[in-house]
């Protein structure tokens, strides 16, 4: 059982991260750097490894990193891992419950409708932008200067995009499993 004071500090630091990190997993990285310098729970090498593992395992990246840091910093304790993860998601849960309640009351108000009318195209654009980023990273795996295009990645992307658009009911989990298997078989 790790020290109670340590658990309290871990909870507080990750609560702060959850409250101020806007825009998903990558936004938590600067907070982790700050923790590293302040508390020395992990080294820079550890942090790099944690980011790599969080990116390569299933689950939202921010949650993965919180779990990893909590586990590591508390001397491989599951209680430590739970403390940081709950700390990270607590602000979200509180804020979203308040907003969901408000939205429910004002849902039929034309102001809310008007806001969403403007918001939906913008949110589509944000997701499109994230998609373009991932697509470029996938098609140009080796280089940053857009010369070494990977034709096999491009071919598979086009193929699966056509399949996904033709069979609307294709389950995303099936698609992920097929692509993971192909990745291993073709050594992508």
């Amino acid at each position: 059982m790790p020290d109670f004071g340590l658990l309290l500090t871990l909870f507080f630091e990750f609560f702060k991260t959850g409250l101020f990190a806007l825009g998903g997993g990558l936004a938590t990285i600067p907070f982790l750097y700050e923790m590293m310098e302040k508390y020395h729970w992990f080294s820079q090498q550890d942090l790099m490894n944690m980011i790599a593992v969080s990116e390569s395992t299933p689950g939202p990246m921010g949650v993965n990193m919180a779990t990893y840091v909590g586990f590591h910093a508390s001397g491989n304790s599951i209680i430590g891992a739970l403390t940081t993860t709950i700390g990270l998601v607590a602000p979200s849960v509180i804020i979203i419950c308040i907003i969901a309640r408000m939205l429910e009351q004002f849902r039929d108000s034309h102001w809310v409708q008007d806001i969403f009318y403007g918001l939906r195209p913008a949110v589509s654009a944000m997701i499109a932008s994230a998609g373009i980023g991932v697509l470029i990273a996938t098609l140009f795996p080796q280089t940053v200067n857009l010369t070494g295009i990977s034709w096999i990645h491009l071919g598979l992307f086009v193929l699966f995009f056509i399949i996904a658009m033709s069979y609307k009911k294709l389950h995303p989990i099936l698609l992920i499993c097929i692509c993971a298997a192909l990745g291993v078989i073709l050594k992508l």
């Binding site: 499109a128 998609g131 990273a137 992307f157 995009f161």
Partner: peptide, 19 residues
Amino acid sequence: QHALSGIRIAVCVLIFKAV
């Protein structure tokens, strides 16, 4: 790494379909 490289293709497809 190979599996992830494959999964990234699936993720791209899913994102663009969603968009």
